[in-house]
Structure formats: C-alpha cells, structure tokens
Design a protein around this nucleic acid. Structure first.
Lengths: 107, 107
DNA sequence: TCATTACGCAACCTCCTGGTTGCGATTAGA
DNA sequence: TCTAATCGCAACCAGGAGGTTGCGTAATGA
C-alpha cells in the first residue's frame, strides 16, 4: 500500500503546522471564509496566512473560490478522511503485530 | 482543543514524508530494526536514513536503544494514535457542520 | 467619484530540511 | 589480533518553508 503513502504524505505535511491546524479549525464550520477573516487574531501578516492557505490548497484539503474582491476558502473533507484511513490501517497493522509479539513472549 | 493541535502537529510533520512513512511501515511489525536493516533498498545513504529516524524520534513515534554496535529502533504507537484521535474529532466536527449546512439549505 | 477594503504578485530574508561526504570510534567475528 | 560491520559526529550544500515588506489592482460603498 505504498500508493496510499504517496497520496497521504502531502496531507500529513500540510497538517504538520499549528497555524495551519488553527486555520482548518476555523474552517471546520463548513462555511466559506475570506483571508482577512481567517487571519483575524493570528500573530502573522495576511500574506503569511495566504502562504499557509496555499499550502493547504496544494495538499487538497481546502478549496478556494474568488467572489467579488474576496477569496473564499472552504474545507475539503475527503483527503483528510483518506489520511485518517491510512493511519487506521497502519495502526491496526502494528497493533496486531505487537499483540502477537506479546502473546508469543508471554508463553 | 488547541493543546491537541500543539501535540499532534509535530507528529503530522513527521508523517509528512514518503521515506519516513516507508520506515514506519518497515517498523510496523513491532520488532526492533537496526539502521542498515531499515536503509536496505532505499535510494539514499545510511546517514540520510539516520536523519529521518531522528525526525521520527524527536516526534516521539519511534524509540531507539543502543545494543552492541547497532542502534535498534522500535515503533511507538501512542503518539500516532493520539494524532489519529485528533483527526477523528476534527473530522467529526466538520462532518456534522456540513451536514447541518446541507440540511438547512435543502429546506 | 473617491477613499477604503481585500487581494495578488514579487522581492527579500533567515532558518530548517533533506541529502551528501569524510572520518573516527566501537563492536563482532574469524 | 586484525578486519569488517555498524554507527555517530561534523561539515557542507541546494533548495524550500515561513515570514516580512512594498506595491499595484480590482471591488465596494458612502
């Protein structure tokens, strides 16, 4: 299942930053948010926020639509769900393996 | 739940690389593996592999014990399980939100 | 119409990442 | 004992990440 890794690695990389997790949390109401709206209260420039949003967009976890003078961002649940499934499969694998190891040691 | 984000972000960052996912996959049998063993077949130097293993170790997803002349690495399931839980909580949140949005639109 | 708002693009900076090579130290085994 | 295996440390490099500033442009609304 190496293709799952190739698909999920960029998603994990996108999730590997507290600022981006905060942005995703702000987007988790499912609604559209503009950049200034998302940047409000964060300790960095609007351009900094824009860069993080581009990272999230390249990883496919958000989408962007221009409406009037603002860029509205929305969360895209599916890639993150795929990444979660990848983690579930992987952890099931080593949980089983560790259980078997423990069993074979205990007896 | 911002503390969960702070705890999980480094784990996600560690998972955000195909080489490291491959290393974790090789470690997912729950057994101890030496560096040369883990590096076998990968298209990079032993030192390159060592650096990736250090990243995984700093993120807490593997542990390392020196035995004789080799360094044996083992997977540590708990931090990854925590990251998976973080993803589950987050996705449940936006799945609900999106469902409510859809419902309020359809009627 | 005109000021304000929201944005994109580009340049620039610093620091980290991912990778290499070289070398020395320790352990294992014939 | 002597050679081979395994590793760690340090230096080095190119490129990307994360962040800033400056500036130009399009949309909004009074």
């Amino acid at each position: 299942m190496v293709s799952g890794a190739i698909r999920s690695a960029p998603v994990f990389a996108a999730l590997g930053d507290v600022t981006r997790l905060e942005l995703l949390s702000r987007l988790s109401d499912g609604k559209q948010h503009s950049i200034v709206q998302l940047a409000d209260g964060l300790q960095l420039t609007r351009q900094g926020v824009t860069k993080h949003l581009q990272v999230l967009k390249r990883a496919g976890v958000v989408s962007c639509k221009r409406i009037g003078r603002e860029s509205r961002f929305t969360i895209r649940p599916k890639p993150i769900a795929k990444a979660k499934e990848y983690l579930s499969r992987a952890s099931a694998q080593w949980d089983d393996a560790i259980d078997r190891l423990r069993a074979s040691v205990e007896e």
